[in-house]
Simulated scan of single mutants.
Amino acid sequence: MTKSVNSAFYGSPDLDAWLRGAGISQIVLSGIQTNMCVETTARMGGNLGYDVVVAFDATYTFDLEGPFGWRRSADEVAQASAVSLHGGGFARVVTTKEVVDSAV
């Protein structure tokens, strides 16, 4: 999979077409950056109707500075993404162990 923007759904090959063609309705996401690529792909996947699962401990991000000099640590940024995705209904945020143990 090759992509040039935050979402894996905008890449080559066409991820949505490939998944649908293969009859796949659930995706499990991991990767870098939690608050960029993982979150954007999760939101798009949710909007496209996939059952999206984020293996939170298999993601990573970095400290971030926003407006007004606000700074957040990597942990705070990652947690905010997890809360937004899970609480907003875009994805279920779980641990890698949960993915492996239960075929979520």
Rank of each mutant, 00 (worst) to 15 (best):
K97H: 13
G31S: 08
V28A: 01
V100E: 09
G45L: 03
T96C: 07
N47Q: 12
M1P: 06
C37F: 04
V53D: 00
V53L: 02
S73I: 03
D14E: 07
R20V: 05
V94Y: 09
R71W: 06
E98R: 11
L15E: 03
D16W: 02
R20W: 05
F90D: 08
E65T: 15
T96D: 03
S81A: 15
G11T: 09
I27G: 00
V94H: 06
L29Y: 05
S25L: 04
L19D: 02
R92W: 06
G49N: 08
S84A: 15
M1D: 11
R72M: 15
T59D: 03
W70Q: 13
T61W: 04
F56R: 11
A55K: 02
N47R: 11
T95H: 05
A103C: 11
E76I: 06
G88M: 10
L29C: 02
N35F: 00
L19V: 03
L19W: 03
V38G: 00
Q79N: 12
H86V: 02
A55H: 04
A80D: 14
G66H: 07
S81Y: 05
L64Y: 13
S4N: 14
K97C: 05
W18A: 14
A103H: 13
S84T: 15
I24N: 04
A22L: 11
A91H: 01
V53P: 00
F90I: 08
V28K: 01
G21Y: 03
Y10Q: 14
P13S: 08
G11D: 06
M44N: 14
A78M: 05
D75W: 07
Q79F: 09
F9K: 03
D57T: 08
G87C: 07
T41M: 01
Y50M: 06
L19T: 01
G88I: 10
A103R: 14
P67H: 13
D51G: 00
V52S: 00
S7Y: 06
M36E: 11
A55G: 04
V5S: 14
I24K: 09
A78D: 02
M44S: 12
G49F: 06
D14K: 05
E76G: 11
L64K: 14
L64D: 10
T59F: 00
Q26C: 11
C37G: 11
R71F: 08
T2V: 10
G87N: 10
T40A: 13
S30F: 10
I27V: 15
G21E: 04
E39K: 12
G89Q: 09
S81L: 06
E98D: 14
R71N: 12
I27N: 00
T40L: 05
L48W: 07
S25I: 03
A55V: 04
M36H: 12
G87F: 10
S7M: 06
R43I: 02
D51F: 03
D51V: 07
T34K: 01
V104I: 14
A82W: 01
A42P: 02
W70K: 13
V94T: 08
E65N: 12
S4C: 12
V28F: 02
G21S: 06
L48G: 01
F90G: 07
T96A: 11
E39F: 05
S73D: 08
D75L: 09
A80M: 15
A103G: 13
G49Y: 07
F68W: 13
S25K: 14
V77S: 02
R71Y: 08
S84E: 12
V77C: 06
G31K: 02
G88W: 12
F9H: 03
G87Y: 09
D57L: 07
D51W: 04
Y10P: 02
N35D: 15
G87P: 01
